[in-house]
Design a protein around this nucleic acid. Sequence first.
DNA 1: AACCTAGGTTTATTATAATAAACCACGATG
DNA 2: CATCGTGGTTTATTATAATAAACCTAGGTT
Lengths: 255, 255
Amino acid sequence: MEKKYWVPALEKANDVLQLVSEQPSKLKLIDLSKQLGINKSSMFSLLNTMEALEWVVREPESTYSLGSKLGFIGNAFFKQFSLIDRFRKEAAITKHTIQETIQLAKLEQRDVLYLAKEEMPSPVRLSSEPGMKLPAHVTALGKAMLASLAESDFEALFPEEALLPELTPFTIKTRSELKAQLAAARAEGFAFDLQEAVMGFCCVAAPIRDAQGRTIAAISCSMFQHEWEAKRELAQREICALAAKLSQDAVQVNS
Amino acid sequence: MEKKYWVPALEKANDVLQLVSEQPSKLKLIDLSKQLGINKSSMFSLLNTMEALEWVVREPESTYSLGSKLGFIGNAFFKQFSLIDRFRKEAAITKHTIQETIQLAKLEQRDVLYLAKEEMPSPVRLSSEPGMKLPAHVTALGKAMLASLAESDFEALFPEEALLPELTPFTIKTRSELKAQLAAARAEGFAFDLQEAVMGFCCVAAPIRDAQGRTIAAISCSMFQHEWEAKRELAQREICALAAKLSQDAVQVNS
DNA sequence: AACCTAGGTTTATTATAATAAACCACGATG
DNA sequence: CATCGTGGTTTATTATAATAAACCTAGGTT
């Protein structure tokens, strides 16, 4: 990470927030200090400030959890995407007919950014959460969106036959393979992910388009690999239907 | 604000985030620098770091908006409150029968902290957003929750016959007046706000209780003052019904 | 084209945040 | 009851972030 024009206090705060968000109400000053390798007096000032700004709250047992300010800012972040509300409402219905988790995401450079999730109660839960990112080329969501990029935009994003990050043995390895799959997705109107992001999981995804036909987001349905055979067709149909519905007078997604 | 054990970089970042969240994609480096009175070179480093940490994103026109990291952290904040999901689902139904905005909040010291909002489309919208705070004593939500506090806890929160912040001419002015209203709320099972927080608006609120009967949150319905007469009874009934429903096996709200 | 200005970047200096170390309070342990 | 160890707080020193000022570039103006 670049070290010039850098404000280390922010990086430290960021690390603290990350850790606290993973284990709220579990960590005390000393734990944070040790786990992050930050001097405890620095941590003291840091936590003192963060508490005053309501980025964190100090619990009675002097453990820390996230503060309301971050809830507020986070809410403002998601507010930029008016699609989300409609997604929540509609997907809540669809998820019951498919009986699987449905997600909404947008493309951000070479990554998909998860915006919302409607999940079915299940013993295993996908680790993807709103606000998280994953490389676009390993997900059905990403492929659904990359598929509608203009040739030149695609070239700009993936300049050379680069080694793409691999998350499973099934992850696409080359740009040419990706291009082939995108062509297929473009033709069919939806994209797959067959254990390419997480072993044991498959997805279908379809793009959401605005009035001008530009792709602004995508939705997906994820399921166990062993359910794929049986459910695949239903999921595909439902996801396409939902995508079509959400595409109607969809407002653009930020930027 | 306390100046010892202080990390000004965080305060600056906080101000930047606040401003950017209010006007996403509007402000450039120089605007932020001027409006916040922060030296532009400091702002340069600040924004550079914040961008690298994905707290903000720099748009093509070099304006700034909130970044995905904050969405992620904010999401984690709200995840602590499992009530929220159930609220969203149930309130989405109730709001249609009342045709007014419904909100969920918890008590945090002398403030109410808004957790979620289900709103009806309307020309005017309440400014309260998830993550925001308001003094408890000016809101129906706050009174509904304060009402179930033990005498000693109440005393600890409001130690003396203090001058409470007043938001409108109708805001409660003294602790004794507040106590009287809380007694009434306790007896009835719900609380009112008659233009005490925002001129022209009235609310009903009812507490949500866990299995042990402890109040953990509250829900409210807000409406124009001129609708109050006609809708008050319906709203009151629906809010109490919804509160009762959400009280069933409610998990505690954080801390 | 020469001149200005405004937004942004870089550099040099100063103020201060980050650190190590000392200190304190308290609970555990023998 | 004395000792030790741990988590938190304060202090003194050092490293560095924040600033002012200089600098650069691109648009606008005459």
